[in-house]
Simulated assay, not measured.
Amino acid sequence: MAEKIKLYGFNNLTKTLSFNIYDVCYAKTEREKNEYVAYIDEQYNAERLTNILCDVTDMIGAHVLNISKQNYDPQGASVTILISEMPMPAETLDPSCNSGLEILSKRETVCGHLDKSHLTVHTYPEFHPNQAISTFRVDIDVSTCGKISPLNALDYLIGSFDSDIITIDYRVRGFTREMDGRKCYLDHKIASIQDFIDAKTLQEYDAQDINVYQSNIFHTKMLIKELHLQNYLFNNDVLEFSPKERLEITNRLRREMIEIYTGMNVYE
């Protein structure tokens, strides 16, 4: 285990981990598209997203101060959690902090706050107007100050969603001081975000890094390697389609994934 840096005063480095995770699906008819969106809304509603973020809070060694959540019409949900590095005595909390907990089941948005940190998640189900392709995007931000690190929750977050395309940004901002007053701009070693992802998970993806080391900015994007068609057919069996149709659907799905991965409409 690497020797810890001894600091003078409070560690006020801000570490921010941002995710975009995409799930792609083939839903041909209008009814199938609407059913897919309804399915996503049910699977990833504000309550489940809250549970995921609370698990992340435990994993990074933080403590929940406040939660706010919301489901949206016609689709989507949001959750925000405010967290602290250390447990907070009840008498020190603002009495309004958790006043909404009793009615969380009636609220459509979730938000949580931390004393130095926060977690947020937003979902965006949608479908292509004429290509029978539906996508589900989830945006997650984990921002911490102090010793706790959001990198500890990487594998859990990837595994919590059907992740075909993943883009991850990690940045460390600000500085803290060592005992002799010397500024410390990074309190842990990192060469790549991939170093914090399980090797078995990485084997399933093509991954690419774009890092700016001198600014403590790290970016990784990942694209699923194997496309098993049955996993992408919503309420349909692969045997319902002819070999030609299967190839066409597979090509449509892969095209959508490549465009999202590259950030370009590459086939226009």
Rank of each mutant, 00 (worst) to 15 (best):
residue 190 I to D: 04
residue 129 P to L: 11
residue 27 A to T: 05
residue 117 S to C: 08
residue 237 D to V: 02
residue 4 K to C: 01
residue 185 Y to E: 11
residue 226 E to W: 01
residue 14 T to G: 00
residue 82 L to M: 05
residue 153 A to C: 10
residue 65 L to G: 01
residue 215 S to T: 11
residue 80 T to K: 06
residue 5 I to K: 13
residue 233 L to V: 09
residue 228 H to G: 00
residue 166 I to G: 03
residue 68 S to N: 08
residue 91 E to V: 13
residue 149 S to A: 07
residue 188 H to C: 03
residue 73 D to F: 11
residue 267 Y to E: 12
residue 118 H to Y: 15
residue 101 L to H: 12
residue 262 T to P: 00
residue 260 I to F: 04
residue 58 D to W: 05
residue 197 I to L: 03
residue 82 L to G: 12
residue 100 G to A: 07
residue 101 L to E: 15
residue 47 E to I: 12
residue 164 D to M: 04
residue 6 K to M: 11
residue 50 T to D: 06
residue 66 N to T: 15
residue 64 V to D: 04
residue 209 D to P: 03
residue 110 V to H: 02
residue 174 G to F: 08
residue 216 N to L: 14
residue 119 L to E: 07
residue 242 S to P: 00
residue 247 L to V: 02
residue 164 D to R: 10
residue 32 E to D: 12
residue 74 P to N: 12
residue 260 I to M: 03
residue 153 A to M: 05
residue 250 T to L: 01
residue 202 L to H: 05
residue 49 L to S: 02
residue 95 P to N: 06
residue 193 I to G: 03
residue 42 E to Y: 13
residue 57 T to P: 01
residue 107 R to V: 09
residue 254 R to W: 05
residue 257 M to R: 13
residue 214 Q to H: 11
residue 169 D to V: 12
residue 4 K to F: 08
residue 138 V to D: 01
residue 199 A to F: 03
residue 138 V to F: 03
residue 220 T to C: 11
residue 96 S to R: 09
residue 182 R to N: 08
residue 59 M to W: 01
residue 125 P to Y: 08
residue 212 V to Q: 13
residue 188 H to W: 02
residue 162 D to L: 14
residue 200 K to M: 04
residue 189 K to F: 01
residue 22 Y to P: 03
residue 61 G to E: 02
residue 141 D to E: 15
residue 245 E to Q: 14
residue 54 C to M: 14
residue 50 T to K: 08
residue 236 N to H: 10
residue 163 S to H: 06
residue 132 A to H: 15
residue 105 S to C: 09
residue 102 E to Y: 09
residue 72 Y to G: 02
residue 198 D to E: 15
residue 257 M to E: 09
residue 102 E to G: 15
residue 170 Y to H: 09
residue 77 A to N: 02
residue 15 K to H: 10
residue 53 L to K: 06
residue 192 S to V: 09
residue 86 M to W: 07
residue 237 D to P: 02
residue 214 Q to V: 13
residue 64 V to S: 02
